[in-house]
Design a binder for these strands. Sequence first.
DNA 1: AGACGTTTGTGAAGGCATGCACAAAGCGAG
DNA 2: CTCGCTTTGTGCATGCCTTCACAAACGTCT
Lengths: 226, 226
Amino acid sequence: MSADPTVRREIPDATVARLPEYLRTLTRLAEEGVAFVSSEELAASVGVRSAQLRKDLSHLGSYGVRGVGYEVETLALEITRALGLTENWPVAIVGMGNLGHALASYSGFVTKGFRIVALFDDDPAHVGERIGDVTIRPSSEIEAAAGELGITIGVIATPAVAAQSVCDALVAAGVRAILNFAPSVLSVPPGIDVRRVDLSTELQILAFHAQRKSALPATPAAVVPQ
Amino acid sequence: MSADPTVRREIPDATVARLPEYLRTLTRLAEEGVAFVSSEELAASVGVRSAQLRKDLSHLGSYGVRGVGYEVETLALEITRALGLTENWPVAIVGMGNLGHALASYSGFVTKGFRIVALFDDDPAHVGERIGDVTIRPSSEIEAAAGELGITIGVIATPAVAAQSVCDALVAAGVRAILNFAPSVLSVPPGIDVRRVDLSTELQILAFHAQRKSALPATPAAVVPQ
DNA sequence: AGACGTTTGTGAAGGCATGCACAAAGCGAG
DNA sequence: CTCGCTTTGTGCATGCCTTCACAAACGTCT
């Protein structure tokens, strides 16, 4: 439709949230040697409706072939491009407790598109330790080091009380996007993007549904088909 | 409105996802000795609009006092009840790599309402190890042990390839709700609730927004107010 | 070349969530 | 008791997301 393929129309947030899922599945298919995939097949693998998948992909452009499907490699490349994963984003992790260590060495975390270039912690027991080829530094160096390394994405894995000051330091260093694992709401200046992942929140949502089901054992109609 | 206060009307998913946030903030306020809070104040602390907060809370019943606000303790108790956290849900974690260890010892994970009663891993190097007062067992014992302990919530922190078989074992043991940290889509029988938390997905969503911003540096109108 | 079956891309409809605006309800002052 | 101020609870409108349904496009087979 659009004459300029680099034109980036507004991609809905809901779609953006699903693109990584599509990308992961496409990558797996590529490794398995699959060359083409239909929206029906891909949607089934990911667990969404095929109509939704097609609408999502239509926001990126027209990369499918009617009557055939999508070329796996091409589509994966286009999603990679749409998500901005052609660049290699430098990431910093602050807070090297159990979770921070897990994140730093989590293989899935270091996917294509990211590389961990700095680790910070205030505990003297951790400072100086090396994980991979990165040495843990004290938090006081965040502003200088993160700025120097050009870090745009920061991960906060500290206790809740430290989260806000760490956040402020990251922002001061020029970080524009923050992934927050601490159970606290961060206040940031406009233009800074924060996503929060909270483990106990997820558990509590599950508990709600579990309780809901066990509280209604005498409603056979409540059993969802499919 | 309703004569029976135990009647549980349909609570929208979007509301359920925010309730843990409200509960956390209320708990903090209670510790600080705050007795009453208005929807405006509470909403500001959590980062939502006050109208949304009031609408969310209205699904639980009418626990506010007009002209005054909400009693912190009462509201916290009601949200606790709505989420089903008055019971103490037994939780099992499967996969004791870096992430599993972090989860098992993560203080925020063992919030009120949950207790970790079983840990599983197939790596002989981990089996037998004790974390807190729970000993790591081999995955082959999932079905027997989880059934015996009455576990309803399972956490999967294994590599992607093992996730589906672990999931099957958990379901066979009677687990009804699963929190999946593995980067794979689980297929489960109807009635089983699965939530997926994916670290690289979150990073990729952040990357999209970061790239979007740096790609449009010449649009001052794009800066969002507030 | 033409007809047929398949699959995409998308307009339109329906459903859900958010935000607005106000009436109802409580408290305190006088 | 009454008046006025404050804050809740909620009908209504708006916008976003999902789902449906179908025309357009492509490959293939005769």
